[in-house]
Design a protein around this nucleic acid. Sequence first.
DNA 1: CGTGGGTTTGAAGCCGGTCAACTCACGTGG
DNA 2: CCACGTGAGTTGACCGGCTTCAAACCCACG
Lengths: 235, 235
Amino acid sequence: MVKNVTFKDAWDGQADCRVCALRESVLFAGLNEGDFEHIHQPIDQYTLPVGAVLYRSGDSGQRMYTIRSGVLKLVQYLPDGSQRIVRLIRSTDVTGLECLLGKPYQHDAIVLQETEVCSLPIKVVDNLSQENPTLHRELLNRWQRALNEADAWLTELSTGSAKQRVARLLLRLVSDMESSECELFAREDMGAMLGITTETASRTIAEFKRRSLLVESRSNHFLLDVPNLQRIAED
Amino acid sequence: MVKNVTFKDAWDGQADCRVCALRESVLFAGLNEGDFEHIHQPIDQYTLPVGAVLYRSGDSGQRMYTIRSGVLKLVQYLPDGSQRIVRLIRSTDVTGLECLLGKPYQHDAIVLQETEVCSLPIKVVDNLSQENPTLHRELLNRWQRALNEADAWLTELSTGSAKQRVARLLLRLVSDMESSECELFAREDMGAMLGITTETASRTIAEFKRRSLLVESRSNHFLLDVPNLQRIAED
DNA sequence: CGTGGGTTTGAAGCCGGTCAACTCACGTGG
DNA sequence: CCACGTGAGTTGACCGGCTTCAAACCCACG
């Protein structure tokens, strides 16, 4: 686990949203030239390595984040100290919406795969959203999207046998890719996503490999046998 | 199960939000006299019996709902037909927010305990929220509240042993009451909330009764031994 | 080349799933 | 009024999957 990566270390510079490659799919999609004049605070860009902490549960933050690439986990803890991963945040997702409402962050946000983020001061988002209805609407959409994700985790990833859950998780990882290739997470993280133990996660993945449902293409990248995994996922 | 309760049957009349007893805690808390002039569509009030369907997943609705009293379940279905309850909606909660975004309802909403609801046309909410920032802010808060609930269901109610889950559910039911009394749900529903079978739910509840963690006060109403249930909940 | 973290595998035991029987309350119809 | 049917809750027996505890393995890294 990489520790103590300060944000300073990871700083990539200031973003120019006007020329952002992801402009079409990102929170600021609906902004026009005039709107950009109203951005009086810098929007910084960072590249965070695996294990880096974007924010911690309970912190009262002043920034939300757009993910340009990579994957983060949102983690909550139980009284007994065990952890549960409640969602994954990926490319074009926005996280930290809650601080727009003056609430502290509700989760730990930790990098699972090297991640590029843009850091948006809430002031900027708040001001723009008052003037630009499209952005405002987009914010609501993001909230709803997060809710849908949360519900899906419950129904798809916390229901059924361990094999079903693992299969559904794998399918989910490639669902928005062109190829059926994906990078796997640590078994411990898979367990925390699926509500099973690390050992069961490992056993299941190992079995899938033996049955060639997973074939390693390059180090820790796997090609999925989608049709057969789907059969397992649905029972 | 009560079937085919039409909304007409359940109609209680038109609501006058100005004199609403729940005004302080409800979505419209921040409205002023002037705002009410802008309500050009009627806000109807209904009393729905157990088993009634408020809306169905996939329906493209034009209304959201404020719950005055009672309890509803939000249900999602898996490909294999089994159901999972992803949230409960209770007094002062708002549900159906998604149709404000033009999306169809994401769940079945079904009455678990007799429920009084107000039906708010999205046009009304939409118009008011454009002019009244307090209401608008309140809408965002509701969205965030739903998200928090969803996350809590994952970490509290879908993690740990069956005994822990049942105990946590029971504690959750009385957490916002003055007394520690609550009304239980059907075992099948409990199972669907906790990701366990009906039988396991029944066995666990029966055992809790034998151990006097649950004492029946009146028909299907139970007093909880909160401290001991808490011990079980945390292990 | 040794150390350590993550992964895999093994063995044992238990919790919860499955299937089935039985009870009880309730409502319907003879 | 009682017989009967229905549906929910409870309980039992059995079994299998998952957890638990441990050991072995693998590989990256200093």
